[in-house]
Amino acid sequence: MKNKHNTLFTNRLYKLMRERNLTLNRVVTLSGMATTTLSNIVNRGSAPRIDTVFKICEGLGISFTEFFDFPPYNQHLDGTPAKGKESKWEKLGNALTSNEKERVRKILSDEI
């Protein structure tokens, strides 16, 4: 049974997929996760683990913060906007293209 947060998560995922013209299978491939994992989240209402959410964000080429930048997650409990100051690392990450992010990952992991 889906709960409110799973529905919000799934709706946001589908919105981002439509914007990028991606299928669930393509998101699975880009995220490096098992098909059943994403299928269970979307179709069965399973709650995603935090590392799974990060993998999905990486596959979509966005930050965790960017994924959850929609109400109610970007609001205080009273409904007022909760925009905080973006860190220098978030600014850098959001300014890089997917290819640039991958190159930085390789440099940081000594794969070059």
Rank of each mutant, 00 (worst) to 15 (best):
L96E: 05
N21V: 07
N25Q: 11
N11G: 11
F54N: 08
D110P: 00
I107G: 09
R44Y: 11
R44I: 02
T80E: 07
L60T: 06
S39P: 02
K88R: 08
S98N: 14
T52N: 11
H5F: 11
S46I: 05
V28P: 04
R105G: 00
I112Y: 14
W89K: 12
G84S: 10
A82T: 01
S31N: 02
G45A: 03
F67E: 02
S31Y: 01
R20A: 11
D51M: 05
K101E: 05
E90H: 12
R12M: 07
E58R: 15
D69H: 14
L24I: 09
L92I: 14
L60V: 06
N3H: 10
G93W: 12
K106L: 12
T10P: 04
Y14W: 09
P48V: 06
K83R: 14
D69G: 02
F67I: 06
L13W: 03
R26S: 14
V27D: 00
N21C: 05
F9S: 01
A95L: 07
D110G: 13
S63P: 00
V27S: 02
G79C: 09
T52I: 13
K91A: 08
S87P: 05
N25T: 12
E86A: 10
K91G: 06
T65H: 10
K2I: 04
T80R: 11
F67M: 04
P71E: 09
I62A: 08
K83V: 13
V53Q: 01
N99F: 08
R49P: 04
F54M: 06
L24D: 09
E19H: 07
N94L: 11
G45V: 01
R49Q: 14
V42K: 10
P81M: 01
N40T: 07
L92Y: 13
K106C: 13
N99C: 04
A95H: 12
I112P: 06
E90W: 00
P48T: 01
T97R: 08
V28N: 00
A82E: 02
Y73N: 02
V42A: 04
K106M: 13
